[in-house]
Design a protein around this nucleic acid. Structure first.
Lengths: 202, 202
DNA sequence: ACCTTAGTTAACCATATGGTTAAACCATTA
DNA sequence: TAATGGTTTAACCATATGGTTAACTAAGGT
């Protein structure tokens, strides 16, 4: 009759510590302290630091991947899709500010992780989006563009400003609140830019 | 009559290791091995891991900052500036692929670093760019846009695809060469998108 | 009441790691 | 050639760290 209390507490604590400090910077003892639980329990439930880390990473990825997948594969017009993605993604990240940096960082540290992730269900499927874009181009509704490039534009404009927040705050010399307002504005800013680019003018 | 041979060898080795593994993942012994030099020498010349790291980080930043600064503050028309920045930045990063991730990562790890950097000479100055954009908007040459947003667009579109290369390769399911071609195409792709957005249509 | 078993703890272990030191090396110079 | 002083090395040190263990606790079942 085990209740998952301890196991979950550990995962929650590990999430906080790993996402703030990364695999290399995190300490098992710190995770134990954060959870208010004996360090041996981390090994009892998760065996090793690496396994615990993978549990955290998988959970993080399976939180963010559907967020991308959902909108990208919805059966709605392209322009609406772009607007919806931007709005919901920015809202999502405001709630999980450590996530993008965590994912990007660890994916760069261990390139093999991507191979593991690709095999999991729920991994974003790009094909639907590609054919939608190709269709629109073919019908002459939008300017010729590779779906890949559009996809990269979309994610870059949405994700990078959060990743590079410290950098931009420094460059632009603005404070946290001011930056947050900029991010809010970007929902429409990004949408407009992309749509404006895709639209064919007379 | 000291020649700087050893000191430089250490810095070069430290650069490689720190940029690949980050502050926490790097080992002093590994840096020593990479340099083919006794570990004690690292402390002899750089005192501690932290100081050595800061030397590497400062050098990295002082490599990339002028790259941004130079084009952004050049006295040329805005559209030309955007094209030039994109082309030269992408070329630059192809030569230093570890740089963006290194900078972003360590800036997120230690927010204080930005304060130190801001005080150094050569730190990018955004004001010139801002007034240029404001001027163009005022004269009705481009659509109304905050200079900050344009700046964020520009950097996001240019930098993120390199940071998130493993992610995109996974999502799009393409190999290294194919991805490199996409990056090459982006020089014009990004330029066109931004300029197209800024241009006022009838 | 006693046994079993999952859960929990404090103490412990082996190793990795940043850092130090004392002695050796070697080129310059008095 | 002997003294000087910057440079280099191997050995060493203290501590941090991931991981293990043996004993203890408590709940459920008999």
């Amino acid at each position: 009759m085990k209740d998952e209390k301890t196991e979950d507490q550990i995962l929650d604590a590990a999430e906080k510590v790993f996402q703030r400090k990364g695999m290399d910077g995190a300490r098992m003892q710190e995770i134990a302290n954060e959870a208010g639980i004996n360090k041996a329990m981390l090994h009892y439930y998760y065996r090793s630091k690496r396994f615990l880390f993978e549990a955290v990473f998988s959970k993080a990825f399976s939180l963010i991947a559907p967020e991308i997948n959902r909108v990208i594969n919805e059966d709605i017009p392209l322009f609406e899709k772009i607007r919806k993605f931007t709005h919901s993604y920015i809202d999502f990240i405001q709630k999980h500010p450590y996530l993008p940096n965590f994912i990007i960082q660890e994916l760069n540290r261990d390139q093999d992780f991507m191979n593991v992730l690709q095999k999991k269900k729920g991994f974003p499927d790009f094909r639907n989006f590609r054919s939608q874009v190709e269709q629109e181009v073919h019908e002459g509704n939008i300017r010729p563009i590779k779906a890949e490039q559009l996809f990269i534009h979309l994610l870059s404009l949405n994700i990078f400003p959060f990743l590079a927040a410290p950098l931009f705050k420094g460059f632009l010399n603005i404070d946290d609140n001011c930056y947050k307002e900029l991010m809010e504005e970007r929902k429409e800013e990004i949408t407009n830019m992309i749509i404006n680019y895709l639209e064919i003018k007379e």
